[in-house]
Design a binder for these strands. Structure first.
Lengths: 220, 220
DNA sequence: CCTCAGAATGAATGATTGTTCATTCCCGAT
DNA sequence: ATCGGGAATGAACAATCATTCATTCTGAGG
């Protein structure tokens, strides 16, 4: 929106470019998925059209049907990408090869899940747009279930490790992991729907207090 | 789907009735809202059409535009109804004129939020369908925000009462209310999207444990 | 420099959908 | 009984959308 001086030939990647370019298939697919994410975040899943996506990607109308078979396919692959991206990031932290200290790893998890990222709001919108449809679409349920199950197992293992380290009593790692995951989902929902009443800072504080009550020795 | 024997004149309310009936405006509006809820739960918000809704209600095609100005209006009023119904039920319990005992009131709240009700799943679907679109639709955000704020205030007051009664230290009622609300939302999400991995019983147990950690004297 | 496989285009198409409104006909008031 | 206001109908309409495919054009290999 800033550099729109169409005086000479324009070869910048983001602005309108008349020249047709041929790119590898994988690159075009990702380009279309990224455009779909932006469209869902801005207009809502139910308002997204193919023209909207291809226009956002700066490409022609028929290209989405060329690289994905149909609109349904494009939306399904977009969900899969967002779901895997989120859970992969989570799992990388929890497996903990990077951060050996358990307290620091808890903080890193909090930062990843509730930290600030400009693009974070876009991802949340997409996330819940699909959740909203999941009740009626078994395909979406299956994608989310698959990645969710793995993340839940890793979280349970992570909590088990903390429980052993702190010798905590009367704490079931499975129930605690379920509760923590639900809490994070609910906080994301609050950040998305009522951002005026729930700041990111307070959301992080609330989640931290949940962990502090469960693992007082690991959270100051 | 069971009693479909079209042998004689049919005057039952739910089955197909040829005879045209004139009913009060308010009744027709509610009838259409109920049909909309069922359609959203079954097919998803993005797949709902006017014909689907009017057919589900057993009425003619143009009637939705007669009682609501447009489709957008119908969807907006449906959201308002579901949101108010849920929060009114919550508030009635928390105000506690019915149940004086605080522990019993906590249990009643858990039962209402995570109890079994056949229609519960339908309402959850609608709830999250709108949440998914809320990120892109300020109108939805405003409706949810309005009812949510009132419920949050009542919950905070309720928790404050419990804190005073139990003389709990180091517990902020506002943060606790935010956390509990988020936890319930997250559990609803789990019940909707991954029902195989989260039973209602376990969801209730997880929420109860959250409360027990905060109010040990009030939850056995 | 030339060639051509196949990537990209975008106008055309058929299907779907929200909305309208002329017509029908129910039901309470007279 | 009957009359009229207005609730209900449903066929028709205009707009929108996903998808197709004949055509254009690119860029790497010969």
């Amino acid at each position: 929106m800033s550099d729109a001086s169409a005086t000479a030939e324009d070869t910048s990647p983001d602005t309108v470019n008349k020249r047709r370019q041929i790119r590898p298939k994988a690159e075009r697919r990702q380009q279309l998925i990224d455009a779909t994410i932006r469209c869902i975040a801005q207009h809502g899943l139910s308002a997204v059209t193919m023209q909207m996506v291809t226009s956002e990607a700066g490409l022609s109308a028929g290209i989405a049907n060329l690289h994905f078979e149909s609109k349904e396919n494009l939306l399904r692959e977009t969900l899969r990408f967002v779901a895997e991206e989120y859970h992969d990031g989570q799992i990388e932290i929890m497996e903990g090869s990077r951060i050996p200290n358990l307290s620091e790893r808890l903080d890193a998890l909090l930062d990843f899940q509730l930290g600030r990222g400009v693009t974070q709001r876009q991802k949340m919108s997409v996330w819940f747009a699909y959740y909203g449809e999941a009740g009626a679409r078994p395909v979406y349920q299956k994608i989310v279930s698959t990645v969710d199950r793995l993340a839940a197992q890793k979280l349970e293992a992570f909590f088990t490790e903390i429980i052993l380290d702190g010798q905590y009593r009367d704490v079931d790692p499975r129930d605690l992991a379920t509760g923590y995951s639900a809490l994070i989902d609910g906080l994301h929902l609050g950040l998305l729907v009522t951002p005026r009443e729930l700041s990111k800072r307070r959301a992080r504080s609330v989640a931290r207090e949940f962990l502090r009550r469960a693992f007082p020795q690991h959270i100051p």
